[in-house]
């Protein structure tokens, strides 16, 4: 039913062919996504991610996207205002510093109806410069906060509630076996992993997003890095492999973790409820365990494998498509 409604709404909108006041779509009616690359020849970790996602949307929905993103290296590029969605992978930029003119252009873009998606706009402090990990902190990264304090000084990022339309605009729920293209009888994930994913990691296929409204419309969202889950090779197989960090417990575990040998650093990460997790991390290693605000301790375990990776990719792609489709409809 939802998909039927989407079909109707999308067809209506595409026939109007206007997304930003006074500007048009690409010539053939498809929507072109603008991607900011401050350094054209900089190192890009997931160069195929966005084109893959746009292709998937063309295949799985009635939306029509140009699978070639329009790359710009400055926000004052006049072509920005000709297209309704701006995608910025914050990890792919050398910095998030912009001139006065660019900040003004970004503000104007959002005020005129443009939608800004800041991928990797959320990043937990303990990850440091590691671009390949995501962690669901519930606040924007400091550079993003600083930037938007100048772009929209009267606004702050606010966490998106779990029941926000963005998480259910087209795809709903977590991937099933058919989404993973595996036999119905095949076990999807290890039990502990599936348990954690369904209850805590991505409940109802949601994730930690923060956003800013402009003129009552959600005009900008930031999320932990999602692009790593969007890539497909030419035969439809997912790239690159993704593993899961899961929080686990066991009998008498709290006492064990309190007393266990540890010589590293601790980091605070903001949770959905605004309280802080304390992450225990040793230099050169993945984070060890976490002390949660209710006083419980849990250990991080790392699961990898084909099924884990497929599941993560399916989730991130469905989520990514929901974000872009939400951007089109709002």
């Amino acid at each position: 039913m939802m998909k039927f409604l989407f079909f109707l709404i999308f067809n209506f909108i595409s026939s109007s062919s206007l997304f930003v006041h006074g500007v048009t779509q690409a010539r053939d009616g498809s929507v072109r996504v603008v991607q900011l690359l401050k350094e054209e020849n900089g190192i890009r970790r997931y160069p195929d991610a966005l084109p893959s996602l746009l292709k998937m949307m063309n295949e799985q929905t009635n939306a029509r996207f140009d699978t070639d993103p329009l790359y710009i290296n400055t926000l004052t590029d006049e072509r920005l205002n000709e297209n309704p969605i701006l995608y910025i992978n914050c990890d792919e930029q050398p910095n998030l510093e912009f001139s006065d003119e660019e900040r003004a252009a970004l503000r104007r873009y959002m005020e005129l109806g443009g939608f800004v998606y800041l991928d990797a706009g959320i990043k937990a402090s303990f990850l440091g410069s590691d671009l390949g990990h995501s962690y669901a902190a519930w606040e924007e990264r400091p550079e993003v906060r600083e930037l938007f304090a100048q772009v929209l000084p009267e606004k702050t990022f606010i966490p998106l509630p779990r029941d926000h339309d963005l998480f259910r605009i087209f795809f709903r729920g977590l991937p099933k076996n058919k989404d993973l293209k595996i036999q119905a009888s095949q076990k999807r994930l290890p039990e502990t992993v599936l348990n954690f994913v369904e209850r805590e990691k991505w409940p109802q296929a949601t994730y930690s997003f923060v956003g800013i409204k402009v003129k009552g419309r959600l005009a900008c969202v930031a999320s932990p890095i999602c692009a790593m889950g969007w890539g497909r090779d030419e035969f439809g197989a997912w790239i690159p492999p993704i593993s899961f960090r899961i929080r686990e417990s066991a009998e008498n575990f709290e006492q064990n973790l309190k007393l266990a040998s540890f010589s590293g650093g601790t980091y605070e990460v903001t949770r959905e409820d605004g309280l802080k997790d304390i992450i225990y991390s040793e230099s050169g290693q993945r984070p060890l365990w976490v002390k949660e605000p209710n006083g419980s301790w849990r250990i991080f375990k790392y699961y990898s494998g084909e099924e884990i990776s497929n599941y993560a990719h399916a989730f991130y792609s469905r989520l990514g498509m929901n974000v872009f489709l939400y951007a089109l409809l709002h």
């Binding site: 402090s125 303990f126 390949g132 990990h133 995501s134 962690y135 669901a136 902190a137 519930w138 994913v197 209850r199 805590e200 990691k201 991505w202 409940p203 994730y207 930690s208 932990p224 790593m228 690159p240 492999p241 993704i242 593993s243 899961f244 960090r245 929080r247 650093g265 601790t266 980091y267 605070e268 949770r271 959905e272 409820d273 309280l275 802080k276 304390i278 993945r286 002390k291 949660e292 605000p293 209710n294 006083g295 419980s296 991080f300 790392y302 990898s304 993560a312």
Partner: peptide, 30 residues
């Protein structure tokens, strides 16, 4: 170079959580 993802959880917190924070110390302490 396998990538790793993590996420949040939804456990509600009582007053003890705040109390324990003061034991741990400053953010990003080494």
């Amino acid at each position: 170079i396998v990538l790793c993802v993590d996420a949040q959880h939804l456990i509600t917190v009582n007053g003890e959580g705040n109390k324990s924070l003061s034991i741990i110390g400053e953010e990003n302490s080494t």
